[in-house]
């Protein structure tokens, strides 16, 4: 593996930065491939970008110029654009299917394959959330039950 063998000996911290960047990149990749929530997939993509940013800055340090820094700034810019546009797509997708599920979009499968349906998932052993209880002061206000329920699981 002589891909990098001819570079100058790396400066300190450069290698460590590269390892951190690689770990972040790999983690993001696993998330992209495995997680089905569109938002989480998106976060994982951003995580990959972060890994790349770290790597770029490491190389910038190694070479002693500003290229890596400048590139990271552009990565930030593009990430912002990407986030704006892609989140709009996510919203549209949600508006159409009611789900944030990447597997909800399966129209391009082979014609006679059945739709992927999640197998029966075991019920969640719901632990009722325990909210801190304060000593009641004064008259308890009339709470809207629905509003309370909606906030139960965020």
């Amino acid at each position: 593996m002589n891909l990098l063998a001819d570079v100058v000996a790396p400066a300190p911290l450069v290698l460590d930065g590269l390892v951190v960047g690689a770990i972040l990149f790999a983690l993001g990749l696993v998330g992209i491939l495995a997680r089905r929530n569109l938002i989480v997939m998106f976060l994982c993509a951003e995580l990959m970008l972060q890994g790349i940013s770290v790597s770029l800055v490491s190389w910038s340090r190694h070479h002693g110029d500003w290229g890596g820094h400048v590139l990271v700034i552009f990565v930030l810019t593009v990430a912002a654009c990407e986030a704006a546009v892609a989140l709009v797509f996510v919203l549209q997708a949600f508006a159409r299917t009611g789900r944030l599920d990447a597997a909800a979009w399966q129209s391009l499968r082979e014609s006679n394959l059945s739709r992927t349906i999640d197998r029966e998932l075991p019920a969640i052993d719901t632990v009722p959330p325990k909210f801190p209880k304060l000593t009641p002061a004064g008259v308890e206000p009339a709470a809207d039950e629905d509003a309370l329920l909606e906030r139960e699981h965020v």
Partner: peptide, 29 residues
């Protein structure tokens, strides 16, 4: 059955393929 229409499966296949190629290069080097 590989043609499931699920984008993530396709992405997975692409990643695995790329890794196999890189591994082959590494092994040769």
């Amino acid at each position: 059955h590989l043609q499931s229409g699920l984008v993530q499966r396709y992405a997975l296949a692409g990643v695995i393929g790329t890794l196999l190629i890189v591994l082959a290069l590494v092994a040769r080097a």
